[in-house]
Amino acid sequence: MKLNKPYTLDKLSQYVGGDEGEIQEMISLFLETIPIEINQLPILAEKHDWQSIYKIAHKIKPSFDVFAMDDILIDIKNIELLARENNKDGKLVSFIPKLMKKFGAVVVLLQAELDE
C-alpha cells in the first residue's frame, strides 16, 4: 500500500531529468542544508531577531516548493510575512513549533527514501 506523503518528487525529478542517482543526491543535500536553517528559527525567535528569520524563510522557501511540501510552505510563507513586519502582532512564534514538527516528520520520510 502506498503511503500518502506530504511531498512529491515529481518536480525534483523534472529538474534533474529523471536521473534516480541525482534525485538521491539532491535529497541528501536537502537533508544536509535545510535542517540547519530550520533549527536556527527558535533561537532567533528567542532573540527577537525577526529580520534574520525573514531572511531564512525567504531563502529556504523555494526548496520546499521543489518538493511540493504545500503544507509546510504555507507556514514558511506566514513566518516570512510576519517576520518581515517585525512580528508586530506577535503571531509569528506560534508558527515555528508547528513548522518544526511537520518538518521533522518530512525529514524522517525523506531519510527513508534514501535508505530504500
Binding site: 525534483l12 529538474y15 541525482e22 539532491m26 526548496s63
Partner: peptide, 10 residues
C-alpha cells in the same frame, strides 16, 4: 541556498 542553487545548476 545551496540546495536550490545546485538544483538549478543540475
Amino acid at each position: 541556498d545551496p540546495f536550490y542553487g545546485k538544483l538549478l545548476k543540475r
